[in-house]
Design a protein around this nucleic acid. Structure first.
Length: 408
RNA sequence: GGGGAGAUUCCAGAGUGGCCAAAUGGGACGGACUGUAACUCCGUUAGCGUAAGCUUUCGAAGGUUCGAAUCCUUCUCUCCCCA
């Protein structure tokens, strides 16, 4: 069932194997028992947006799935109400039950962008966690000591820095581990930040006399700002559901230094293609070109080749080209704007009508900073009057706001 | 249960009666540069107002004062030490 090649493929990009030969051992085991691997992937439906960081893990799961293994997705609807403390220096607020359910449905839909969801088992951990009584709970808690829990860097950092840690957060890793026991996981996948939680599952399984799961951790993809981790709360994500133009633009905005990482972790290129692209970069090719290749590749995965081509074209026109008139403008009818056209129209008021979410003060700043162009000309005075009647007017506000104001 | 420390603008973190819409750093936004929304440099960063200026903001609610982020009272939350 597995050749050397497929094992090499499965090992590609994996950062941590626990234990090191775990993958090979588990594969041998299931071959003997003539069954597929049961691979667990847990998600807390806290924020309902999957991003490229998640995709790193999901793409690996996809490889397992294509080799005939079973992916069991745990929707942590119960644990989401606690809040995973991973990577947080603050406690997360618990979510309400209806919120969690809604997020879970959105999640599964997004998972289908990468995995064959039809072939996955999907389980909600409220099924068993919600049913536990106090006696069972205490029995579970007795399996682990405080010292073990404090091993975890999130907790020990917070503890050392006098930050609050609530009791329910301490319990979180145990509950996640308990999921592994319940579904008889052979292997659990996650980001490297999940190592502690995943190994807790292994420990609990073994303490119950079951074989401990293997743990595979994927590297954490850096955010588009180049910071340590792509995460929703940092606002540095590329969402799987982002529109093509948005997705492409975000990829163009990642620091050049991140290119190899993105190339390896989130593109579809074959290993030899990746090599070739990296070699070109080393030979001094403009990183921009590689970034475009990566952008096109990624947009193609989540949308289509046509969408990717369109997104690249849009980027070149909207961002790279110097010309003003060839930009893509959003057409706005003058009559649809909340303006008193009987009065002489100030530039500030026009901007406010086009960007109602911006404050007047901020728009004034933008104008004075030279970020507002009218028909290609920089206007620095917010009080300047603009002629809008019986004429079409092209106006740029900031880097992204291009409007064409037409009469009526 | 007892004693002590603290809560500041998006975040971190100064400020201990008027010079405070509040230092500094980060982030964000903008400009210049670059046929990258990268890198670098520079600027801006509560709202309203053409402006003078006015209004709201320093955990919450009251109070003292001509004047409070700064003082007092109560409350909420957090941390530390002792038991």
């Amino acid at each position: 069932m597995h050749t050397e090649d497929s094992i090499a493929l499965l090992r590609e990009n994996v950062e941590i194997f626990l234990p090191y030969q775990a993958l090979e051992e588990k594969l041998a085991l299931v071959r003997q028992e003539n069954r597929p691997l049961r691979i667990k992937l847990g998600f807390d439906p806290t924020a309902p947006d999957l991003h490229l960081g998640h995709a790193v893990v999901l793409k690996k799961l996809k490889q397992f799935q294509e080799l005939g293994h079973t992916v069991v997705i745990i929707i942590g609807d119960f644990t989401a109400r606690i809040g995973d403390p991973t990577g947080k220096n603050k406690s997360r607020p618990p979510l309400s039950a209806p919120q969690v359910l809604e997020n879970a449905q959105t999640y599964v839909k997004q998972l289908s962008k990468i995995l064959d969801v039809e072939k996955c088992q999907i389980r909600y951990n409220s099924e068993w966690l919600g049913a536990m009584d106090m006696t069972e709970t205490i029995r579970l808690l007795s399996q682990v000591t405080l010292a073990q829990i404090l091993q975890r860097t999130d907790f020990s950092n917070r503890f050392q820095n006098n930050m609050p840690i609530s009791m329910h957060e301490l319990v979180y890793p145990l509950l996640q581990g308990f999921d592994s026991l319940q579904i008889h996981a052979d292997l659990e996948m996650g980001g490297t930040d999940q190592l502690f939680n995943c190994s807790m599952g292994r420990q609990l399984q073994e303490s119950q006399g079951a074989p401990g799961q293997a743990v595979l951790c994927m590297p954490l993809l850096k955010g588009i700002d180049g910071s340590a981790k792509m995460s929703k709360s940092e606002g540095n994500i590329i969402g799987l559901t982002d529109a093509p133009q948005e997705m492409f633009g975000k990829i163009m905005s990642i620091p050049d230094a991140l290119l190899p990482e993105y190339l390896h972790l989130v593109t579809d290129f074959t290993p030899s293609e990746k090599q070739a692209l990296l070699a070109k970069l080393e030979q001094g090719e403009n990183p921009m070109n590689l970034k475009k290749r990566i952008g096109t590749n990624i947009v193609t995965q989540y949308h289509s080749a046509e969408a990717a081509a369109g997104a690249q074209e849009f980027f070149q026109k909207q961002v790279q080209s110097k010309g003003f008139t060839e930009k893509e403008f959003t057409t706005v009818g003058l009559a649809s704007l909340p303006l008193d056209t009987a009065q002489p129209l100030r530039l500030l008021d026009l901007c406010k009508a086009l960007k109602p979410q911006e404050s007047n003060s901020n728009l004034k700043r933008l104008i004075e900073a030279g970020s507002v162009l009218v028909n290609g000309d920089k206007i620095l005075n917010a009080q300047s009057l603009v002629q809008v009647e019986n004429t079409t007017l092209k106006i740029r506000i900031g880097k992204r706001g291009f409007f064409e104001v037409v009469p009526q």
